[in-house]
Design a binder for these strands. Sequence first.
DNA 1: CACTCCCGCCATTTG
DNA 2: CAAATGGCGGGAGTG
Length: 362
Amino acid sequence: MASLNDPDVKHPSIYSRKEKSLGVLCSNFLSLYNRDGVESIGLDNAANQLGVERRRIYDIVNILESVGVLTKRAKNQYTWKGFNAIPHALEELRKQAFNENLKVSQICTSVTVGNENDCLGSSNSNSSYTDRCTNSSGSSKNESNRKEKSLGLLTKNFIKLFISSNTDLISLDAAATSLLSDLHDPTAMKTKVRRLYDIANVLSSMNLLEKTRHPQSGKPSFRWMGPKIVSQTLDTNSSKRRAFGTDITNHEDVKRKRIDCSKEVTVAMPSNIDCVKVKNNENITMQQQASRKSKAFVFGPFTPAITQKAGNSGNKKLKQAQDWENLAGTYHSQYNNKALDDLFGHYVEAWKSWYAEADKKK
DNA sequence: CACTCCCGCCATTTG
DNA sequence: CAAATGGCGGGAGTG
């Protein structure tokens, strides 16, 4: 259905690439499956609901799976694990990263890490994170690195970079380089970078990452917005671990410049789903209204709906999060839709319990 | 022009 | 073998 040949019938130009970004798609996906008793996800259904080609769903799903939000159950079928699973997934990644680093450092204990003080990436000599996880049982020439080049694995390794280092700001180049298996091939680099952008977009939609530019160099970089984890002692102090704040929230203000429209609008979920109670607050995007009254279709080629541009662009420096607590206190609920708002509630809950657990374990 | 990164061709893997 | 997956990179938007 979705006659894709009528883009002109309504709004001739207004095509905005942003509205089709993986980030937006991910937001929609998330709000569509979060909430109520969803536990099974059918790829076909997802594609239809979200109005995108199947290929895109694979992208989203693979990345989400890397973070624990989903699990593949069977062909065409995924299981929704929810945001509560993220903490554990990250912890798991941290462990892996730890072991891998150990392994590497043992092999080449020398390597003066001297230069390059901050930007990790070049720290571990060559080999990058690609380990031979792939079937350990010899198995003749396992030439195809297909598995090793998967978006999913790349996502994990990418996240490990942040979780295991002391920096939360990594430049695009550094990341690409360190995740590259053979850093001599310019083509491979380009491809890797493309993937990194894809990943960054979806992680951003979950507020785990932020796309920025390095302060001085101005080079495109990524900043980890999720928990730090790292070795860090963390032990006892049981005082306040709810640092994650109440509203994890997001940015909007923090990242105002680029992404702008990426999230607020989002959600336009299809009919059922308990109907987003949208507290008609400010401006409900017409997109939502439309989708609500007309059966979930409308969705397809996203309505132009121009996200509200509001009066942003005001304050720019604003230093970014890191101290979620503080941030949370300053700006509260900036989501126009209950769904997302609530969604992050769970998210926060997860962090809290996770921390409590970690603390106890210590 | 340099960045971003959507789109979908088509190789692989599955069932 | 068909269907499901998912690399990969051309090249269209953006700034």
